[in-house]
């Protein structure tokens, strides 16, 4: 419908502007704490972008993990490390860096704009008909069934309108424990390793002070 798609476009460009604006503040701002907060703003913009792209679960995970946790971690780091109070000086090779970044951008943009993406406009009629009506047609011909999403039988998953999986959470869950179960477990191990490694790295290297028990008599001050 016309108004939903113009609103989607407005939301998309708004979220992109927020993301890219805050990203520019991150790389140009001298005060590191402001850069950390701008980074959190950029992450929030990316989260909104995921919502616009109909990836709700990924968007919520982005806000929960990046904005809620990693941004606080960065703010803590900035608050602890006192050297950054002087700000972050720009480095000698800035122009070369900018040129390289522009080259990377040109290469990726050229590739993206010149590729012939087979998008959802060209999928087959059966899929198109099923996807735009809000329910999935499972089976062909006389045996078409309309199936509803539920966790009972994850082999029959609803694909709602617009050709994208709006209720993607259960499908992602099934993906994680069926097709990608090895990656899932390895990520768990990786996070445990990161946790233990981080704790070891920040452990205080000074020896522990002697414990004074209460039974020792103390010399009274003279």
């Amino acid at each position: 419908m016309i108004e939903v798609s113009t609103l989607t476009t407005v939301a998309f460009w708004g979220a992109s502007a927020m993301t890219l604006g805050f990203a520019l503040i991150v790389v140009t701002q001298r005060d590191v704490f402001r850069a950390a907060i701008a980074l959190a703003g950029s992450f929030l913009g990316v989260g909104i972008l995921y919502f616009v792209l109909s990836a709700e679960f990924v968007g919520v995970v982005q806000i929960l993990v990046y904005v809620g946790a990693i941004s606080s971690l960065m703010a803590f780091a900035v608050m602890f490390i006192q050297d950054v109070k002087a700000g972050s000086r720009p480095v000698q090779g800035r122009l070369v860096g900018a040129a390289v970044a522009v080259l990377i951008l040109a290469a990726v943009a050229f590739t993206a704009l010149n590729t012939d993406w087979s998008t959802m406009d060209e999928i087959s009629d059966q899929v198109a008909g099923a996807l735009t009506e809000g329910y999935v047609q499972v089976g062909t011909g006389d045996e078409i069934r309309i199936e509803k999403v539920g966790f009972t039988d994850p082999d029959e998953v609803v694909v709602p309108n617009g050709g994208v999986l709006v209720d993607s959470t259960s499908a992602i869950g099934v993906l994680l424990v069926r097709e990608y179960v090895l990656a899932f477990e390895i990520i768990g191990l990786l996070l445990v390793a990161a946790l233990i490694g981080g704790l070891l790295l920040i452990r205080d290297p000074k020896p522990e002070p002697e414990v004074v028990t209460g039974s020792e008599k103390r010399e009274a001050p003279v």
Binding site: A23, V27, V78, V84, S88, V91, A98, A101, L105
Partner: peptide
């Protein structure tokens, strides 16, 4: 791509590790 390029510029041009 623009976000990636901004990040790439930031990696090269900033002096503080954070």
């Amino acid at each position: 791509a623009v976000l990636f390029a901004i990040g790439a510029y930031g990696v090269v041009s900033r002096s503080s590790l954070i």
